[in-house]
Each structure stands twice: as C-alpha cells, then as structure tokens.
Design a protein around this nucleic acid. Structure first.
Length: 283
DNA sequence: ACCATGACCTGTAGGC
DNA sequence: TGCCTACAGGTCATGG
C-alpha cells in the first residue's frame, strides 16, 4: 500500500494523539508478521511516553521515553487506525477487533491506535534511539526525496553506468528512499521519460529534471492525504484523494492527459511490477 | 557489483 | 455458488 506520501499522511494523523502521550497499554496479538516482533514488545511499550513521531522513507519512528525507538512499516496492506480520541477529532468509537488487528495501543488520553495488516508484509521493531539509523532496515536506505541530500548531481551520479531500467532504479530504495510503484510511474510521466529507458542512458539534463518532478509529485500527494486504492486510509479513517490526480497509474487503455497527444496509456510488466506510461510522449 | 526472479501473505475481482 | 487465475501500495534472499 503505502509509499512516502501515505506514510507521511499516517504519521501526521497519529501525531496529535500520540506525541507527548503515554501508552497505557500495548496489546500484541501474535509473535510475528513476516519477521518476528522484538522480544517483550508489549512490555517495552506499555507505560512509555511517546516523545515524537518521525518518518524515514516509508518507516514511522516513534521515540520513547525509555530511550528506545519503535519502528513501524506498513508493508503493502498495513493500516494505523485511531479511534476513541477524547478531543473529538476522531469520530469513531473503538471498532470491533478484527482478524488482522495485530497490535493495539491504548493511550492514556483514551485514543486507541490499531495496527492491522492482512498480508503481514509490515514490520515492527524496537532499537535504542541513538542507533536508530543503523537499524538493518534503515542502514542502507538512500536519501530522502524531499531532503537536501537528494539533488541533481547526486541522481546523475547514481544512475550513471546503470544498465537497469529507470523504473527499477527509482524503485531501488538504496538510490532513493520512499518512492514506490505509483509515484515512480507518475514522476516518469511528468518527466516524459519512458520507464523502459536504461537508467544510465538518459541525458544528464533529463535526469536532473526528474529531481524537481519527484519532489512535486510527492508534495502534491502529501497535500492530498495520499492515494487510496484498495486498503489505504488515513489514521482517522478518511480516504486520501491523490488517486483522482493520477495521469498514468491504473489508467491502462485510457487517453493520455498531455495536450495534443493522441496516445493511450499502456501497461507493461517490469521486474514483476506493472508500469503505466504513454508510449507516445514518454521517451 | 549488478540485475532479474521468486518468495513472503491474504484478499478481491473477473472469467467460466 | 464455486473454482481458478491474475493482481495488489513492499522488501528480501538467492541465484546467474
């Protein structure tokens, strides 16, 4: 499910009910997802004050007063749902627990955060806060697309000599951390670059032009509350609405949005994932 | 080092 | 209704 804009949307939804608040009770309903939960996770969360919620790539990091940081990844189908907020921002009563509700955090302020993930590709882990960036899941991530370390010279240098497609290269989290299938497709459309092009075979000025395009797509999607296709909900249960702004993703066979272009959006499979693009105006 | 592929899971939609 | 296949926002281990 969630790429950077969706994860950032969830983080922003959780912040008002979690930051500065105490986890009165943590309930962990199974010992693992794809990877095991850390030993004693419920006990290590219970009673802890949440100092702040950060995001790194598609990971949410909750810094705890104990000196540990809770790492959360939503995988493909993960959700963090808030219910029962006493301030009334979140209208829902606590929902009936469901089959795939794996972790429930009851905050001292009355809010409940339920982590559900049917496919179980998500993850949670705990590590000492000072070593958070060294966590195996974070250590090899590339720069944040919205940060200063991601810039034109960097991307040109990283793609130079690469024989793989630009689509695969932009999905590689070691090059750039946070894009997924939707936003790579959308960014390549806006940059008029075919997803089939070899990454190392695109002129430097076209690669450089991708940098502001990627930033713009992500920022616009964050402002829209992310994209809701099947599973994604904001933490308050609302839908994101960036899916209405897609130019190519999921639009196979439909007309290209570019003025004067008569093309229809095509779908091809690259490294096992669907790529959507206009064969006429993306080169 | 690089690159492609399968594996990990469940749910849903569509064809017959 | 039921069975089968394809497909889904992500990552990781494994091979060539």
């Amino acid at each position: 499910m969630p790429e950077l804009p969706e994860v950032e949307t969830v983080r922003r939804g959780l912040a008002p009910v979690m930051e500065g608040q105490v986890i009165a009770q943590a309930q962990v309903n199974r010992r693992d997802l794809r990877r095991p939960f850390p030993p004693g996770m419920a006990a290590r969360l219970t009673g802890q004050r949440v100092l702040g919620l950060r995001r790194r790539s598609k990971y949410i990091l909750a810094d705890l007063a104990s000196g540990e940081t809770l790492l959360i990844h939503l995988g493909m189908s993960g959700r963090m749902m808030v219910s029962g907020d006493p301030l009334g921002r979140f209208v829902h009563d606590h929902p009936t627990p469901e089959k795939h509700d794996h972790v429930v955090l009851d905050m001292a302020n009355g809010a409940r955060i339920t982590f559900s993930d049917p496919r179980r590709f998500g993850a949670m882990d705990l590590m000492p806060t000072p070593n958070a960036e060294a966590h195996p899941l974070l250590a090899r991530l590339g720069p944040e697309p919205l940060g200063n370390d991601f810039n034109e010279p960097y991307l040109v240098a990283r793609l130079k000599g690469r024989n793989t497609s630009i689509k695969s290269a932009l999905l590689d989290q070691r090059i750039l951390a946070g894009l997924g299938n939707i936003y790579v497709c959308e960014a390549l459309y806006r940059a008029r670059i075919s997803p089939r092009r070899r990454a190392g075979n695109i002129s430097a000025h076209r690669v450089a032009a991708l940098v502001p395009v990627i930033r713009a797509v992500l920022n616009t999607a964050i402002e829209a509350g992310g994209s809701s296709l099947r599973d994604f909900r904001q933490a308050d249960g609302e839908l994101g609405y960036f899916q209405h702004s897609f130019d190519v993703y999921g639009r196979e066979g439909m007309a290209c949005h570019t003025q004067g272009c008569t093309g229809r959006i095509a779908r091809i499979v690259q490294s096992g994932r669907s790529s959507f693009y206009c064969p006429l105006c993306q080169r």
